[in-house]
Design a protein around this nucleic acid. Structure first.
Length: 544
RNA sequence: GUGAGCGUAGCUCAGUGGUAGAGCAUCGGGCUGUGGACCCGAGGGUCGUGGGUUCAAAUCCCAUCGCUCACCCCA
């Protein structure tokens, strides 16, 4: 019989993380917990969806992220109103009924009257839902409803005085209005987490906490794009933020130090840290204007994409990868020459702080951040072997963001690591995890109701309580098969339990690597496995 | 949204118009309480899907879906 393959597949751009890869993911996340804790960062667990408006305000309503790449949906629970909405939107006019021809025919009334009734009921229910707050009491909804009520009256009263075509036109208009009515909050799956952290900071008045607030998070983010290497629709980030009164470059440097310490602990090789300053609101605006001016002079020599960016986002021209544009870009004015005194001082001090910490870095004057909220310090870490998406981490300062979202004046800096890419980079660097490791495979032989099995169950439990990884076959197996399976599963020891062992009270422990066997009593067995020497052997085998 | 490449067994792939294959993996046997190596055997495919051309299509043509990489954009 042919095995039917499921017709269900993971949707485009999302994927399963299977063992043994999941072990590497666990290590990456656990190491973050460990290292970040030593810098006194504490974990914040955030919802994965928020009001759409939060992201629109923080990330920037004009960015691609918000305008076309978020998973956005309406959250509503007004089921009766919804039924009328659906009935209206799917309404088809009735067939033309015979009657006096011309615009004044009763046939037209028969055709369109039912639609007017539907809208009438919708208006009644909608007004009630608005007044009770079942649907959002926004000015937009209020005027939509008022307009709808008025239009509905006009429609219903004078169907017969209009041509069929005119009536169809009005039906279309009414449908549009109904469609525009907002039934609930617009929510979005988070495309990044900084906005949520800041929202939580404000919501819980964390500015009243002593000292700087140092938080980290990890989890999935969502963006609707065509997937490519290291870029998925559900992707994962590990990030950290410092929020507080100080914008001292020492904070920036310590955040970067923590990040580098983390990557170092993971054993990542070949990572490069790039830093830059994109100035504050004032000096950046001046620089952007200057840059745009210069770009316009060389517009003819640029590709279509860069030409468009001159208007939309001149900073991003600096990111161009086109070969023939490189020489042109290198001659463009640099932000470092246009920083205000305070920003220049801040950037210089950051570099001094990095040197103090012996952190290697490169200045990349072309490193700009795409999101609106960044100020001053920006940084990025790239790793080899990742294809076109070679940045594993991006971060920077965002001093105005808390205020922008309605909080008290607060400074902020943070970063987000693309976990998917970090894992890829670790695998490229040969730091991937091996298969899971079984310490003891219990090869028992006999029937399930025999004392052999009872002893096997008991021993397996004792070993597990000691922390050993134990595999206990659920059904009777021939010894040959047991050992074969133990070998394939990569077990270190096979514990053989049969009638002989029950009779003698000692069990056969076989080391699979070299076939060495020894007979041990129950207590000897535990002691032997727990001995330091065996721990070391086990550790060594796990490493390899 | 745009472009390119690729869809044959669980995996990696061969097969350029004439009976769908290999290696690995899985399962069974050789071998009744001793694994790996070896030997023998088995299962597993509407060749992504639909249409067209042809006596005949995995192979040629068209469409469609999917995957991958890149662009756009950017944590």
């Amino acid at each position: 019989m042919k095995q039917q393959r499921s017709q269900f597949r993971a949707i485009r751009g999302v994927r399963d993380i299977l063992p043994p890869q999941s072990a590497l993911w666990n290590r990456v996340e656990q190491t973050a917990h460990d290292v970040f804790a030593t810098y006194n960062f504490q974990e914040i667990r955030l919802p994965i969806f928020e009001q759409t408006e939060l992201f629109a305000r923080s990330v920037g309503a004009d960015t691609d992220i918000v305008s076309k790449e978020m998973y956005t949906f309406e959250d509503y629970d007004t089921s009766e109103l919804l039924e009328y909405r659906n009935a209206i939107l799917t309404w088809q006019e009735l067939p033309e009924v015979s009657g006096p021809a011309g615009p004044l025919g009763v046939g037209a009334v028969a055709m369109f009257q039912p639609f007017g009734e539907l809208v009438y009921k919708f208006c009644l229910l909608g007004r009630e839902a608005f007044d009770t707050g079942q649907i959002p009491r926004t000015p937009e909804n209020d005027s939509l409803l008022k307009g709808l009520i008025g239009e509905r009256e006009i429609f219903l009263v004078s169907i017969q005085s209009r041509t069929i075509e005119e009536n169809r036109q009005m039906v279309g208009n009414l449908k549009d209005r109904v469609r525009q009515l907002r039934f609930g909050d617009s929510l979005s799956l988070r495309p990044e987490a900084t906005a949520s952290v800041v929202r939580a900071y404000i919501e819980h008045s964390m500015h009243t906490l002593p000292g700087d607030v140092k938080l980290y998070y990890m989890g999935p983010m969502f963006r609707r794009e065509r997937p490519q290497k290291g870029r998925y629709r559900q992707f994962y980030q590990i990030g950290a933020e410092v929020l507080g009164q100080s914008d001292s470059p020492a904070i920036d440097a310590e955040v970067i130090e923590m990040l580098m310490a983390y990557l170092d602990r993971l054993g990542l090789k070949g990572a490069t840290l790039y830093v830059n300053s994109i100035g504050c609101k004032e000096c950046r605006a001046a620089y952007v204007a200057k840059l745009r001016e210069e770009l316009l002079k060389v517009k003819d020599q640029l590709g279509a994409d860069s030409q468009r960016r001159i208007e939309t986002n001149p900073l991003r021209v600096l990111d161009s990868k086109l070969e023939h544009e490189q020489a042109i870009i290198e001659r463009l004015p640099r932000i470092s020459d246009h920083l205000c005194a305070a920003c220049r001082e801040h950037f210089a001090e950051l570099q001094a702080q990095l040197k103090l910490r012996s952190i290697e870095y490169k200045i990349n004057w072309r490193l700009v951040r795409g999101l609106d909220y960044y100020t001053r310090t920006t940084f990025e870490i790239t790793a080899p072997g990742l294809g076109a998406q070679n940045a594993i981490c991006g971060g920077g300062r965002y001093d105005g963001l808390v205020e922008l979202l309605g909080g008290p004046p607060t400074k902020g800096i943070g970063f987000a690591i693309g976990t998917d890419r970090l894992v890829l980079a670790l695998q490229e660097a040969g730091k991937g995890e091996g298969a899971s490791h079984i310490d003891v495979f219990v090869a028992w032989l006999g029937r399930a109701e025999s004392p052999v099995y009872a002893a096997a169950v008991k021993l397996a439990r004792q070993l597990r309580e000691e922390g050993f990884v134990v595999e206990l076959p659920p059904e009777e197996m021939k010894l040959k098969k047991s050992l074969g399976l133990a070998d394939k599963l990569g077990a270190r020891y096979a514990l053989i339990i049969g009638d002989d062992e029950i009779a003698s009270g000692s069990f056969v422990l076989k080391r699979l690597a070299d076939s060495e066997q020894r007979k041990l009593s129950e207590s000897e067995l535990l002691n032997y496995l727990k001995s330091d020497e065996n721990r070391k052997v086990a550790a060594a085998q796990r490493q390899s």
